[in-house]
Simulated assay, not measured.
Amino acid sequence: MNRADLHTHTTASDGVHRPADNVKMAKEAGLAAIAITDHDTVAGIAEAKEAGRRCGVEVVPGVEISTSYEGTEIHVLGYYIDVEDPTLLRRLVSQRNVRDARNEGIVARLNELGIPLTMAEVAEAAGREPGMDETIGRPHIAEALVRRGVVATTQEAFDRYLAKGKPGYVDPPPRISPLEVFGWIREAGGTAIVAHPGLYRNDALAEKFLLDGADGLEAYHSDHGPEAERYFRELAEKHGKLATGGSDFHGARKGKIYHGAIGNRTVDVSVLAELRRRSARG
């Protein structure tokens, strides 16, 4: 009971399970703490915190914000942010608007390919309308394609249409830089961590971001092997920064867990105290 999974997603973005369910699974996995880090929204945190109070699991308020740097999509995790900070909430709305514009572009591209998908079908698959506090993304488009019978699984939807380089892929509209988002998170009282740096296939970026304001790196991730985990941990330590970790749990679709199960990657709970200490309001 001294471990924490600092990267999970819920139905507030592209996860399968409600925030309270993630907390329950953390309890069942023997974890002391879990972070809720939905994409560009904090809508799931209140429910998770209430569940955490009931079952004795600490819930770390977090968010995962999408950015772009020299043509590479970079995700930044923010921990112990003030989820009621009006400036942060306004900024997250702008982020979700970017996602909505991209979703419309993907649907239009699929229509050009002869697949008459509509945004209404995507909204139904997501269980929400665009413009709400929760996000809609490519996994919901994939689910809509499954429901329409175009593909058998969401993985097939990505493999055939939605992954980068596939015919239905659309680059997102211009996004802000990770350096700017480090500032957003700090201004909202939080600590900024570069998510899954090994997935960007450019290790030099990780060091650059540490030098340019990131508080640390997500060294431990379900898609990092032991060598990558050691490299990013040592890189963070070299610069006096934090090495965090989490499963990046999204839930299971058609029996396949996306990234990893809750508790698949964890850190000692002592990391939480350090995240709070380094936060702008800690």
Rank of each mutant, 00 (worst) to 15 (best):
H221M: 12
D212Q: 15
H221S: 13
R186I: 03
D203F: 06
T191A: 10
L199I: 10
D203R: 12
F209C: 04
L211Q: 15
A195E: 06
I193R: 02
D212G: 05
A204F: 06
W184T: 03
R201H: 09
A214S: 13
A219P: 15
A219M: 14
F182T: 03
V194H: 00
L217E: 14
R201F: 07
P197Y: 00
L205Q: 10
G189W: 03
P197C: 01
D215F: 10
K208Y: 13
E218Y: 09
P197W: 00
A214D: 12
W184G: 02
F209P: 10
L199D: 02
A219E: 15
A204I: 10
D203G: 03
A219G: 15
H221E: 13
G198M: 05
K208C: 07
Y200Q: 04
G183L: 00
Y200H: 09
D203Y: 05
V194I: 14
A214H: 07
R201N: 09
K208D: 12
D215S: 13
G216R: 11
E218V: 14
A195D: 09
H196Y: 03
Y220V: 14
G189L: 03
G216P: 15
F182S: 03
H196L: 05
V194M: 09
T191M: 05
F182G: 01
I185W: 03
E207W: 01
I185T: 08
P197S: 01
G216D: 13
G183S: 11
G216L: 12
L211E: 14
V181L: 11
R186M: 03
A195C: 07
A188Y: 06
V181N: 09
I193Q: 02
A192G: 05
A204Y: 08
G198A: 04
V194C: 03
D203H: 10
G189R: 04
G190D: 04
F182E: 02
H196V: 08
D203E: 12
E187P: 07
E187M: 04
F182M: 07
L199V: 10
E218Q: 13
G189C: 07
L205G: 09
A195F: 03
F182L: 08
V194F: 00
L199N: 02
F182Y: 11
K208H: 12
H196D: 06
E218I: 13
I185Y: 03
F209E: 01
A195G: 07
A195K: 04
A195L: 05
A214E: 12
N202G: 09
A214L: 11
L205C: 07
I193D: 07
L205T: 08
V194P: 08
T191F: 02
L210K: 00
A188H: 08
E218W: 09
K208Q: 14
R186E: 09
L211S: 11
P197K: 00
L217S: 14
